[in-house]
Design a protein around this nucleic acid. Structure first.
Length: 419
RNA sequence: GUGGGUGUAGUUCAAAGGUAGAGCGCCAGAUUGUGGUUCUGGAUGUUGUGGGUUCGAGUCCCAUCAUCCACCCCA
């Protein structure tokens, strides 16, 4: 039996790679225009980072981490998300001592152990940004704008932006108590998961898909109704900024995020028709995470978008990625005798920056042309005895079906002009 | 972790318990050194794996693995 890829992983084959490069270019452009610099952190970290950073009660930490002992007996975890690592790097490299704010973006694979399905994989890629050192809602607005601009630049349509405030360490305990008081009489009717949530993190009951839980929670006090003055002002200012910059959003008071570190602003971007996993990006503010990881008391905010899901949406919406036709030459060889001169010509073209390949399967001339056509070469040069003698070569433009006899110098010139 | 669907050629899929097939793709040819269309020919399978029922199993049963989808959760 042939060896297959591990469950939940994907090979990105060359054909697919075009779309990835396209997305990556857009990331760089957006990062650049918003003043964010790329950062790359390790794909594995000390397990403790995620336990402290992402939160012990989150499902990610409880049951989805790839954790193992290394040979030095350290507990190591493949990163399940990017924020904790970026925060760690920000603290460890003392970037907090530089002029603020500090703004990073990153891209790379994340790992979560869960059953794969449409749009959910064990290794998946995220594009994310993090901004440290400012509590200003303008940063919240800018981060949300970047996220939306990423999708828009890709040509996606019909995204839904949901925003909410999940409060801070002042108002959250107030809401938690209010919520528990409200739920207490109906406790027995809650589903088993929500019974556990009741103590650990009652806020997440809002997220439950169970109809009875939804019914119970329908009129429960939302976090919004319990927000302190600071959080209320923050949310209001954010809304003003979003309105002012023409970003449409839905204020979703039930929006709760699965990672424990969020404070104040939380948001999520949804798109339909990619199956059950409709969330293609999300993020929020985390005002105590930096300190939690051992840094100074500094706030942060960021988002992460799932690139595989983004790609699925692009395919579902039939967004085309146009790339221009390449100029590349196939060198057709008539007989074995022209192999050496053909090879020399190929290398000479390559050294002049022209993509060139030659036949390496000893095929008939006809078969070589068929191959060149199938592989989309823009030009074919044929080399036979006559060409070697005269130093002039028939250069055929495959699209225009035109052929002319040229010297090598003329060939290079023509090809460079067309590129 | 729970539930459901599906495993047959490179690929998409047929074959109603009785000789494993088709489209696409791939390779070759249609007279001398030129592609896309057309025509002709060709190659390719331990029917995921292991058991069982049967005179006989791709087909029925059991197990196992893989994969897809959904729940959970999230990107």
């Amino acid at each position: 039996m042939a060896i297959t890829r591990p469950k939940g992983t994907n090979d990105i084959m060359p054909e697919e790679m075009k779309r990835w490069h396209y997305m990556e270019n857009i990331m760089r452009t957006i990062g650049q225009t918003y003043g964010y610099s790329e950062i790359r952190t390790p794909m594995f970290e000390h397990t403790e980072l995620f336990q402290r950073g992402v939160g012990e009660t989150s499902d990610i930490v409880e049951k989805e981490m790839y954790t193992f002992q290394d040979k030095g007996n350290r507990s190591i975890t493949l990163r399940p998300e990017g924020t904790a690592s970026v925060v760690r790097a920000f603290v460890e490299n003392r970037d907090y001592a530089e002029a603020q704010p500090t703004k990073y973006y990153y891209q790379g694979p994340m790992f979560r152990y869960s059953r794969p399905q449409a749009g959910r994989y064990r290794q998946f890629n995220q594009f994310g940004v993090e901004a440290f050192g400012s509590k200003d809602p303008a940063i919240d607005a800018e981060v949300i704008a970047m996220c939306m601009e990423f999708f828009e630049k890709l040509g996606l349509q019909r995204m839904e932006l949901h925003i909410n405030s999940v409060g801070c360490k002042v108002c959250r305990p107030v809401h938690k108590q209010a919520l528990k008081d409200y739920l207490a009489p109906s406790y027995e009717e809650l589903c088993d998961t929500c019974k556990n949530r009741y103590e650990a993190n009652p806020l997440r009951i809002f997220d439950c898909k169970s109809e009875t839980c939804q019914e119970i929670v329908k009129d429960a006090p939302t976090i919004t109704s319990c927000l302190c003055e600071e959080c209320t002002d923050h949310l209001n200012e954010l809304k003003i900024l979003l309105d002012a910059s023409g970003i449409e959003y839905i204020l979703n008071e039930n929006l709760v995020r699965g990672l424990d570190y969020y404070t104040k602003t939380a948001f999520e971007v949804m798109v339909s028709d990619i199956g059950a996993q409709s969330s293609i990006g999300g993020g929020g503010r985390y005002d105590s995470l930096v300190e939690e990881v051992g840094g100074p008391d500094m706030s942060g905010i960021g988002f992460a978008v799932g690139l595989e899901r983004t790609l699925l949406s692009m395919k579902a919406q039939e967004v085309s990625v146009l790339d221009k036709e390449p100029i590349n030459v196939f060198i057709a060889v008539i007989s074995d005798q022209e192999k050496v001169p053909a090879y020399q010509l190929m290398q000479q073209l390559r050294k002049n920056g022209i993509a060139a390949e030659m036949d390496v399967l000893g095929r008939s001339l006809k078969a070589q042309f068929k191959y060149a056509n199938k592989r989309g070469f823009s030009h074919v040069v044929t080399i036979g005895n006559e060409e070697v003698q005269n130093m002039r070569y028939p250069l055929k433009n495959m699209k225009k079906k035109e052929e002319s006899k040229v010297s090598i110098e003329e060939m290079i010139l023509t090809l460079k002009e067309e590129a």
